[in-house]
Structure formats: structure tokens, C-alpha cells
């Protein structure tokens, strides 16, 4: 004859709050009654689902925003003319980069990544050879010298990541402002779309 345990006793078991006598009875019921096992498991899942409920609901909102951003990107279509324009080198910056390669500063900070003209599809990753000595301002410009975005990189950072969801395919120039010193180079976003 199965023993009947109420939901409060099941909760106490799940919380580890049963006294040894009741625990022995409870465990013996688990060993012999499949329906009871299911009931305890169901109660455990109910408890966890409710505990996590608000967090999961907020995560679902975050995830839907991420999905829709990615779906929008996948739906974007470009003409060859648009792409040619977006990937065209900026003559002024290109000459500057040839004249004075700017990948290290008076603070001796060197930018390890991104490499010159590296390609990025989803995110742009910066890494430095030492922690940034002060707060640095990172500016990303497109090939028409228009600022796309600016970021403050906290002092003491050795890396920094930028999500590229809102970046069109094309050629970009980054500038890292460290005090009165500016480091600069070029990168590509979705270089696979660059016309021949």
C-alpha cells in the first residue's frame, strides 16, 4: 500500500528539510513507487520553472531582439554599386597610413588585433599588448570619414569587443585616442561581399 506524502512534504524533501525517519520512509517510497517518483520530479520542475520564470521571460525578450536583428541583417540586399561605394578606400586615410603606420603610441601601447585590413562579420575584437594606461576613446569611421560609432574603453583594459550588427558591409577605419596620441588602421566588414 503506497504511503501518501503531501506536496508540502515533497517540498521539504526537495529542500533537504526532512527528518531522518521521514526521509527513510520517503526514500523507500521512491524506490518502490514509479508514480511517486514522477510526482516528486514534477514538483521539482514546477518549483524550478517558477523560480526561473521572470528571468526566462526577460531572456526571451532579449533573445527575440537578437533574432530579429540577425534576421534583418540576413534580409539585407545590396547592389554592386552600393558595395563598390562602401568598400572604396578613403584616399586621405590610406595615404596617412602609408606615410606613418600608426599602431603604437607614446604610452608604448600596441594594438595587437585587429590586424591591418582584417575582415570581421559579426564582431570586431581589439586586443592590446598591455592594459590601457588611461580611458581611451575608440572611433569607428566609414570610408567617407563619417563617424559610425564611438566607445570609451576603460583604463586597464586589454581587449574590447564591438558588435557589428548595425554595420553595413564595407571598409572602415578605427582611431584609438590615447591622450594626445592617436592610433589608427583599417578593417573590413563582410569582405566576402566586396566587388572584384
Amino acid at each position: 500500500m503506497p504511503i501518501l506524502f503531501d506536496t508540502e512534504t515533497i517540498d521539504n524533501y526537495l529542500n533537504g528539510n526532512l527528518d531522518s525517519n521521514l526521509l527513510a520512509l520517503f526514500e523507500s517510497e521512491i524506490d518502490s513507487n514509479k508514480n511517486f517518483v514522477e510526482q516528486v520530479f514534477c514538483q521539482k520542475m514546477i518549483k524550478e520553472t517558477i523560480e526561473q520564470h521572470d528571468k526566462i521571460a526577460r531572456l526571451q525578450t532579449i533573445m527575440s531582439q537578437i533574432y530579429s536583428r540577425h534576421t534583418d541583417i540576413q534580409k539585407r540586399v545590396y547592389t554592386t554599386k552600393q558595395l563598390t561605394k562602401q568598400f572604396k578606400p578613403c584616399q586621405y586615410y590610406e595615404q596617412e597610413l602609408i606615410a606613418a603606420p600608426m599602431r603604437s603610441s607614446k604610452y608604448a601601447l600596441k594594438v595587437i588585433e585587429p590586424q591591418k585590413e582584417a575582415n570581421f562579420d559579426n564582431e570586431l575584437f581589439f586586443s592590446f599588448d598591455m592594459p590601457t594606461p588611461i580611458v581611451c576613446n575608440l572611433i569607428i569611421e566609414d570610408n567617407e570619414e563619417t563617424i559610425v560609432e564611438q566607445y570609451d574603453i576603460a583604463a586597464g583594459s586589454t581587449n574590447f569587443t564591438i558588435l557589428l550588427n548595425n554595420y553595413l558591409p564595407g571598409r572602415y577605419y578605427w582611431k584609438l585616442d590615447i591622450g594626445d596620441n592617436v592610433l589608427m588602421d583599417s578593417i573590413f566588414v563582410q569582405k566576402n561581399l566586396m566587388p572584384e
Partner: peptide, 18 residues
Amino acid sequence: FNTLDSVFIEKVYNEMTP
């Protein structure tokens, strides 16, 4: 995931999707 850090979650999403 536990602090609902949407920027970091998106980084994981971007890493795993391809």
C-alpha cells in the same frame, strides 16, 4: 545568462551561430 547581460549573450550568439 544569470545577470541578463544582453550584450554578452549576443556575443555568445554571434560566436555560436556560424
